[in-house]
Structure formats: structure tokens, C-alpha cells
Design a protein around this nucleic acid. Structure first.
Lengths: 240, 240
DNA sequence: TTAAAACTTTGATTTCAATCACATAATTCT
DNA sequence: AGAATTATGTGATTGAAATCAAAGTTTTAA
């Protein structure tokens, strides 16, 4: 018996539920129950998980990979609103208030998703009210992130905004190495430009400038090394 | 008896609870119960309801007046994040996830507040789980608004951003009059500049330009008339 | 493996809003 | 009311990033 339970636990560890904070209040028994309700899907890089205006019918949890959420501005530029990574969930708005998706979400790399159907999700909320509180908390922190973006996009100095972005990425995608922080960029130059609302060429130039100043070093196109984290933070204005 | 109930109902109408969507699922009996828990406060124009970093101990509902939420950018500029109006609530993050306030909130005019203490609020959530769902829904729509701001601030054309702002304001603060929409601005020129992340002088110039073009007419310093809503919307890029 | 397509860098030029400086208007205070 | 303070408007100048243009580079696909 014990062996079996251990076995099951081991198998649960691999599931998205363990990566997502909204389920942390549940015990093993409950998690197992939910696990049986979860569906899986995979998308290739570049595919849309859903598009603006869609009615999303499941809670989507990212189990592997990452995705960007964006809309088009009136100028036709793509404005990126969020980068979702492993453990993030999305689609909750559509499930709880019946709104249509307010942005398109597209895979930045191949992604594996865990899906929880609307009905099951709503039932779950009734059964475990603590989940609702967790969701409110998570939405709160997501709002804080959005507020940060809004603030940093409101900063006029583009240098500061780019530094903020690099530091942001370093927290999520960086690995400490002897020389500094090695960073695998989730976005292309164009993507970063769209995230910050600036021109692609400007990112290139600024990154080049930072490299000349010895703050960073380009390793490959998609990887860079942060050499002087502190100076970068100072440039960013200690915003985070 | 009936008279008494009517009386009580009449009195309830005046309370903030009726202005705030999170309580709409409750019946009269329940509302009355909550009403007894509510405290009142008033702030003068310019006073801070709370400052960034504070531990807010109540759910705050705006019963009259309006307030701005802002932070300082690394450049020392005030970046406005939200304008709260009658019926909006705030402070829920601090109550549910014990975070400190991530912005300062300051009265734009004299405001009357209804306060619901943390304990009572949490108890309420347990008693009426539907309130949690309402809150999630409301947070969702607030996020949508933030996303809109983020998108519109990401729009490079400043004309478009100003038009968006005017149209936004017209929905909340505008009255239809024969000539168009009469708008009492909740923010000064400087405030608008801080909301959009641009210079005060630029707002002045653009507003002047729009007036020359016949899109708007300045009535007084704080009031303006939108003459050509459609053209304004076209300039805004139909964003809303 | 090469060809094509997509992405990136770099340079030259232009544009538009920030800044500076000051005049004018509107509020607030006593 | 009148002075003081604060907010707003306008012109001149500057500067930084957008745009345009074109050459490299990397990735993808055939």
C-alpha cells in the first residue's frame, strides 16, 4: 500500500498541479481527484493557444514552455502584455465572468498544457472555496506585475526600461554562472521591442551600447550574459 | 412593518454597498447586516487615503468623489495607475494576500469612504462564497482596464493616447448635451500628463491643436466639450 | 547543402516631443 | 480684495528615438 501511495505521489509530482500555486492548499487525495479531470495539449512554437475574442472553455495551465499574450495597437504593432511561463495559468477570466479573451496567446516555444474544463473548474471552486482566495491572491500579484509594466513603460528613459526588462528576465530565465547571470532570452529583439513599445532597431543599438559599456555580453543571439547586475539595476532605477 | 422595511431599504440605497458590484448577489437582509459593519471616513482633496507600502486594514469603497493611485517613477515623475470613482473598491489585495499597498492613493476631490474591516470582510467571504467570485470578476475587469492602459501607453502616437484618454473620461464623467459630450475633467493638465507619461506642455499643445481642428472646445479649465466624438475615436484608433 | 526567408545590425536622416524659459491665468489664502 | 501660490499656455531649442535604407546574419525549408 505504502509503495502504491508513493508511486502515485511520484506521478503527481510531474503534473502541472504541483507547479501552480492555486492548488497548493489541497491535500494529496484532492490533488489526485483533480488530476483525473485534467486534459493535455501541446502546441508548436508560433501557434496560437487562443485568439483575442475567443471564448476559452478551460482553465489553461502551462506545464512546459512559454507563451506571450498580446494585442495589436491601433498602429498595427503587436503590444505584448504578458509572458507566461511554466506554472502560470490563464483563461480564468473567461471562465468566471464569461468575458471573451482580451488578448491573443501564442507559443514562444513548444508548450505542453494542462487543461481543466470550465464545468469541472467551477465545481472545484464550490467544493474548495480556498481556491478562490488563492486565485484572488494570484490575480493580485499579476496586477502588481502589470502595474510595474505600466510604470516602467511610463518611464521616459528607454535605457531604464530595457534594463528593467533584462533584470526581469534574469529572475525568470537566468542562471548564475561565475561571470554573472546567463540569460536565455524568451523573446526575439522584435519581441522585446514590442514588449517595451519601442522600435526594433533601438533595442539593437541599446544592447550594443550596454555591451560596449561592459554591462552585458552577447553570447549568442538568444543568450546573453549579465556582467554588472548592480549597474544595470542602478540604470533601471532600482525599480525591479 | 412594511413601512419600516421600506424605510430601511430607502436608507440602504444611499449606502456604498449599492454602488459596488461585489455585493449585488446579496439580498436585503444580508445587505442590512453588512451595513451595520461599515465605518465611514472623509478625506479632503489632496489628502492621501494611504501611501505605498502601507498595510491597509480595511476594504475601502468610494461612496463619493474620486481618487488617483500612483507611484513615483525612477525619474521622480508621478505615474498614475488608476483613477478610482464612485463605487470602486480598493485595498482588497492587502486584505487577501497580506501584501503592502503597491501604490499611494490620493483624493482628487473630497471623498467619502465606506470601510469594511479586514476581519469582517474575511468572515463575509467565508459566509458568502459568491462574493469571492464577484471579486474575481471585478479584478478581471480591472485587469482588462490596466491592459488597455498598457496597450495605449505602448502606442507611440501621442495624439492617439490623448484621444483615448478623453474618450475614457467621457464614459465616466461625460454628460450628453446637444452639442456633444460635456466633460468635467477629473485630472489637471499635469495629472493627465502623468497618467499618459508625457510632458505637461505637450498636453496643452495637443488640446489646443484638437480645439483648432474643431474636435473639442474648452469650456473652462476643468471642463471641455467633445464635439466630434467619432473623429476622436478614429484618431484613438478605435481602441476605446 | 543550398536557397529562401526571417531576423538583426548599422548608418543617415527626419520627426516629434521634451526641455528650458517665461508670460499669463486661475486658485488659494489671509 | 489683493497678494501669493499654483496651474497653464506659448515660443525656441534640443535631443533622442523613429524611420528609411541597406547590408549582414541566422534560421528554416526544400
Amino acid at each position: 500500500m505504502v509503495a502504491c501511495v508513493n508511486n502515485c505521489l511520484a506521478c503527481l509530482q510531474k503534473l502541472c498541479m504541483h507547479k501552480v500555486p492555486i492548488f497548493t492548499s489541497l491535500n494529496q487525495e484532492e490533488l489526485r481527484k483533480i488530476a483525473s479531470l485534467i486534459q493535455h495539449q501541446e502546441y508548436q512554437k508560433g501557434e496560437a493557444l487562443f485568439v483575442e475574442g475567443a471564448l476559452v472553455s478551460s482553465l489553461i495551465i502551462i506545464n512546459e514552455g512559454s507563451a506571450k499574450a498580446f494585442r495589436y495597437t491601433s498602429e498595427g504593432r503587436e503590444q505584448i502584455l504578458y509572458i507566461f511561463a511554466e506554472g502560470d495559468f490563464l483563461g480564468e477570466q473567461n471562465l468566471l465572468s464569461n468575458q471573451r479573451a482580451s488578448y491573443t496567446v501564442e507559443a514562444l516555444a513548444n508548450v505542453k498544457l494542462c487543461l481543466l474544463a470550465k464545468q469541472e473548474f467551477q465545481q472545484l471552486l464550490e467544493e474548495y472555496p480556498t481556491i478562490a482566495v488563492k486565485i484572488i491572491a494570484e490575480l493580485g500579484s499579476r496586477m502588481t506585475r502589470l502595474e510595474n509594466s505600466l510604470q516602467s513603460i511610463g518611464v521616459r528613459s528607454i535605457d531604464a526600461r530595457i534594463c528593467s526588462l533584462l533584470l526581469d528576465f534574469s529572475l525568470k530565465y537566468g542562471k548564475a554562472v561565475p561571470e554573472g547571470i546567463l540569460l536565455r532570452l524568451p523573446l526575439s529583439r522584435e519581441g522585446m521591442a514590442n514588449y517595451l513599445g519601442i522600435a526594433r532597431e533601438t533595442i539593437s543599438r541599446k544592447l550594443g551600447q550596454f555591451e560596449n559599456e561592459g554591462l552585458i555580453r552577447g553570447v549568442s543571439n538568444k543568450e546573453l550574459l549579465i556582467l554588472e547586475r548592480d549597474k544595470l539595476a542602478a540604470l533601471a532605477g532600482e525599480l525591479g
